[in-house]
């Protein structure tokens, strides 16, 4: 489990996170949602340790992330996988080399073991036979899947996804969501997804943290969204008239 405790983050006098406390559970897809500028990315980067909070604590299980020395932090980091918004695949490396990078860097596996592990991860994201393709030869959806394969290659306990659906068509978005969900459940990973994709909210939102103006405005799950009386949440989720009509129809049922 990951727990954020009263996280405050300030950039040059600008308070972006104003005291966020939230819990993220293993085996569940935990979503951070909110409008652009609500502090989602800053919060995610703080959770993963890329940003040092101005005050507050991040707990990975019983370990305070920001009290660790370099060696202990590196050990925790090896239990973390992250899918970036732009996939962050290394352009000069093939798909196989990209996925193998963490194995090369941190394990003493033989070459065959590494290739087997890479092939397993590629099969897991339905990308068999893409080993020798470069990132520039892959579509956006395929790049995301390679990003997921690289994130899970070291069998992480924690998986972070920064807007995994951005730039993808709805069908591919659903495939990516389903993939993240199934990997999370299979491996009992604590998965935290930063998104403003409404399909994701309604399909895989096991635990949803809605941020507004640097604070947690609402916390619940996908089945509680419809019945919530929080106006800001309703405005955010059902922003379009079409979705509002759908919501009203669903409520009548």
């Amino acid at each position: 489990m990951i727990r954020a405790e009263n996280i405050v983050k300030e950039f040059n006098g600008n308070l972006v996170l104003k005291g966020i406390s939230a819990e993220f559970y293993p085996g569940k897809t935990n979503l951070i949602i909110g409008r652009s500028g609500a502090g989602k990315t800053v919060f995610l980067k703080t959770l993963v340790g890329l940003n040092q909070p101005t005050s507050g604590k991040i707990w990975y299980g019983n370990t305070d992330l920001f009290s660790l020395d370099k060696k202990a932090l590196r050990k925790i980091r090896m239990e973390v996988g992250m899918l970036f918004q732009g996939s962050a695949l290394f352009d000069s490396l093939t798909t196989e080399q990209n996925i193998r990078f963490p194995l090369d860097m941190f394990t003493n596996m033989t070459k065959k073991e590494k290739i087997d592990r890479v092939n397993y991860c590629l099969a897991r994201v339905n990308l068999e036979n893409a080993n020798n393709k470069y990132p520039s030869e892959l579509s956006g959806g395929m790049q995301k899947r390679v990003g997921i394969a690289r994130a899970i290659v070291l069998e992480p306990k924690y998986l972070f996804c920064d807007e995994p659906n951005s730039g993808l068509d709805p069908k591919t978005s659903i495939l990516i969501d389903e993939l993240i969900k199934s990997i999370t459940v299979e491996n009992n990973i604590t998965t935290i997804i930063n998104t403003h994709d409404m399909n994701s909210v309604m399909e895989i939102g096991d635990n949803i943290v809605f941020l507004h103006n640097g604070l947690v405005e609402w916390n619940g799950n996908k089945s509680q969204v419809l019945g919530s009386n929080n106006e800001l949440l309703q405005e955010f989720i059902f922003a379009s008239p079409f979705l509002r009509r759908l919501r009203d129809a669903a409520r009548k049922l």
């Binding site: 993963v48 980091r77 973390v80 992250m82 962050a88 963490p102 941190f106």
Partner: peptide
């Protein structure tokens, strides 16, 4: 800019 450095940091590199 392409977050390659962040990706490596998170891996523990």
């Amino acid at each position: 800019q392409k977050e390659h450095i962040d990706a490596m940091e998170i891996m523990g590199v």
